[in-house]
């Protein structure tokens, strides 16, 4: 298990480095996907497979795709222009990043436990998760781990109901905000709307349909467009 952890961690760190260093943006996005995946693996190692599934669903399924779309929209069409790293910021970034890393390592290693709690360095065993049939008393926490989907739902409508509502509000605001921000003004005036296009091409198609298909299988919709 430790070997597995080390393997996953090394892969994850390499993927993170790749994200930061890759010159091609799509490659950086791919490395980012790999990093998300290793984080999901870490969640599985931490016995939170629900969270791992959510991680894959939201990050790889949605965020990565969104980033790829953004790369396509802000580059030339093939998206293969390379980007450079900023020379002037290289030294400050290295100093800041490595400094932060060493500070964090120092802090993690030398953390003094709060009163009555163990230190982080000495925490190497997890609280056990007794299952229902094993004779040991089932704590609420072990029940939660064994049926995490249900417990997350229950927590969301009881203890975390306010954060849940706020998150919903935030998502709605983000949705509306993203549409408002990215909406191109004057789109309607310049070109016909995306939805229904009574263009010449479409007219031709309708004519074909009228001539070709006596039964007019797709006529009602197209006819209503041109009428």
């Amino acid at each position: 298990m430790t070997y597995l952890f080390v393997f996953i961690s090394v892969l994850g760190l390499l993927a993170a480095l790749g994200t930061v260093l890759a010159r091609n943006l799509v490659h950086a996005g791919l490395f980012l996907v790999a990093f998300f995946f290793t984080v999901a693996c870490q969640f599985v190692l931490l016995e939170a497979e629900f969270l791992a599934a959510v991680q894959v669903l939201v990050y790889i399924g949605a965020v990565a795709i969104l980033l790829m779309f953004a790369i396509m929209l802000t580059r030339n069409v093939q998206g293969d222009m390379t980007t450079t790293t900023s020379r002037t910021w290289l030294l400050p970034a290295l100093v800041g990043g490595l400094g932060l890393f060493f500070v964090l390592m120092f802090g993690i290693n030398d953390q003094v436990g709060l009163k009555g709690r163990m230190t982080w360095a000495s925490a190497s065993t997890r609280p056990e998760i007794p299952r229902a049939g094993e004779g040991k008393p089932v704590t609420p926490r072990s029940a939660a781990i064994n049926d995490m989907g249900r417990m997350v739902g229950r927590e969301m409508v009881t203890r975390f109901v306010v954060p849940f509502e706020v998150a919903g509000l935030l998502l709605t605001a983000a949705l509306v905000g993203a549409v408002v921000v990215a909406y191109r003004e004057g789109d309607d005036a310049e070109s016909p709307r995306r939805g229904i296009q009574p263009t010449r091409l479409h007219g031709a198609v309708t004519v074909q349909a009228t001539n070709g298909h006596a039964d007019g299988s797709d006529l009602p919709s197209t006819a209503s467009v041109t009428s």
Binding site: T19, V20, L25, T74, T83, S86, W89, G97
Partner: peptide, 8 residues
Amino acid sequence: LVRRNAIA
């Protein structure tokens, strides 16, 4: 800090 591209 290092990357220049906003998406990166």
